[in-house]
Design a protein around this nucleic acid. Structure first.
Lengths: 187, 187, 187, 187
DNA sequence: GATGAATGAGCATTCATTCAT
DNA sequence: GATGAATGAATGCTCATTCAT
């Protein structure tokens, strides 16, 4: 692994465990196997490191979800794929999930360097907008449906991690929860 | 206002604006109109102050929601009241909402002194459980419905604060969103 | 017990256990059963309290030794009585002994308020001086004999507290050690 | 001089002059010609610095005395060499002597990091024990003779610093005082 | 590019002392 | 005389950042 990636991975874990303030850059350098000063050759300041981790995570997450979506046809199946992919990513990247939570509720989230996710270009948003236009979905503000979609995924995710269950059961609950959601928004 | 309450209010605002680390205790004392040392007569450490603010907020929130609920009859109306009260509280106490978000994704949330909310005794959870028993709600894990309820409120809340709209419109969207949710979970 | 005496006794123990710096005036007040501010009605500053304790101890010690001496006739018996009394006081007032050690090796010992023991007026010094004049003792500087006397007592004392032994044995060792010392200084 | 040694020397002087509490670490750093934080790169806490100084002093003192002793033959000459070396060290290292006094009557002396001087292995103790076995010394507890030896050295030392005198005279008094002591303990 | 010793601003916390009640 | 809340100067220690090697 390249050094910058190594540093990001180490820092990610330490930040989630001990918070931004609770993690000294010297500790990150040490656990990354580099010298104190070396860290600053890759990330000029601690804040830049923190934001870089955020950007790295969101990029990977977006890539994963986009790839999972495949074709962008407007259909229940597309929504279903997005729902499953989002949940899967959360379940398989819990450290990253926690990091994003922590980052978003910290003052760093106001940093100008943070990747800005323009909701209008988000594939889910586009899908919803088209769905409404095609009278496949209820005539509601697309941003509201977008927000409810995200929340529903999170709601299920929180339940699943608080009540660890079998893979099979997880799958069933996921399908069931998606169906509930779909019935809620389809016209 | 009593001094401890004054300190809590000042700290709440500063913590939300600048983060826990970004807010010096001396700054809190100064803006609270007390001397540096006085703050520590009321809250022995910064961590205790941070946890105390959390406990103060959750207590007020719980009280508000419980009062809004009134009778605990198992009915759509009760769920509606809880939905509206939760959203209202979020909308009218944004600083406190942000504080809770920040606190929950910080290492302080693991503090032993933090009020522990036992989900089994939460009025919403009880309502859901009874609703399932009475075949008013779909036969799903009550904790999942609980989680989806909370998420739906948050989903709507995020939409509303990102798209400020008239009080009238807010009210309509809220009723509409609750109805969607209700249709989703009723048997 | 009067309040000032009560405070002195409490402070004495706390200072020996935790050092001057390690003992907060508030702690002394608390353990003395008085309020924070009350302590300062009796001792205007912490330093005054520290010096007062020193003076109180040295006065009591001097009184005890003087009383033990009785007649001031220049004789082996007088030296013996002083030797025994000094040792006894150390053995029976270990807290006070430790306090004096700590005080004397602290910057407080330079305080102008500390009782000054003018060696020339010290009964032991007078005794020694007269002993030399009467050719009872070796012709050495009296201050040197004084210092050796004190050191011999301390040397025995340190041995006794490091090797707790029976009262009988303690007595025997004391007499034996004094005899050694006497043989050393008698002409 | 290496930086840690420089810091130790500076701190030694300041601690003796102003006490442990009366000496701020920032003052030590400043007078050592290093930055505040640098001090803590060498000594993680103030307490560690204090104990390190103690250990440094006792090591140097032990080395000096051991070297002065030379052969360990059991003879009056060996005791004489130890007596002279101990006194010399005290006279030539007064700051260090005062430091040890202050340290030993402070709570820091209970620190686990402090060098433990096991009396049984002390060269003087061994010498005394062998001297008794060989019927060179009086049949007394060796630890008592040890203690009296040390006290006699201190007693003379206190006299000498209170009554500064010529080198010649100091030498004479020392030899004389040792002879007195030797007569006291020899069988 | 890598190192790690050095830096010094910054902060949480302590505590002797004051004074209004 | 007693109280104890309030004070604020003082200090040990941390840690992001620099830079000479």
């Amino acid at each position: 692994m390249k050094k910058d990636e190594q540093i990001i991975q180490t820092a990610l874990k330490l930040f989630v465990d001990n918070g931004f303030h609770g993690t000294a850059t010297s500790k990150i350098a040490q656990e990354s196997g580099v010298a104190n000063g070396t860290l600053f050759n890759y990330f000029a300041t601690k804040e830049i490191l923190i934001v870089s981790i955020h950007n790295s995570i969101t990029k990977k997450m977006d890539d994963f979800i986009m790839e999972s979506l495949g074709t962008k046809s407007v259909s229940k199946e597309s929504f279903r794929k997005l729902f499953l992919a989002s949940l899967d990513w959360n379940l398989n990247n819990r450290l990253e999930f926690q990091y994003l939570q922590q980052f978003n509720s910290s003052p760093y989230s106001k940093s100008l360097m943070a990747r800005i996710l323009n909701i209008n270009e988000h594939p889910l948003y586009v899908l919803i907008k088209n769905g409404i236009d095609l009278v496949l979905l209820k005539p509601m503000p697309p941003a509201l449906i977008f927000s409810l979609f995200t929340s529903q995924v999170n709601g299920l995710f929180y339940y699943l991690i608080a009540n660890e269950t079998s893979v099979e059961n997880t799958k069933n609950l996921t399908e069931q929860t998606f169906d509930l959601f779909w019935n809620m928004i389809e016209d």
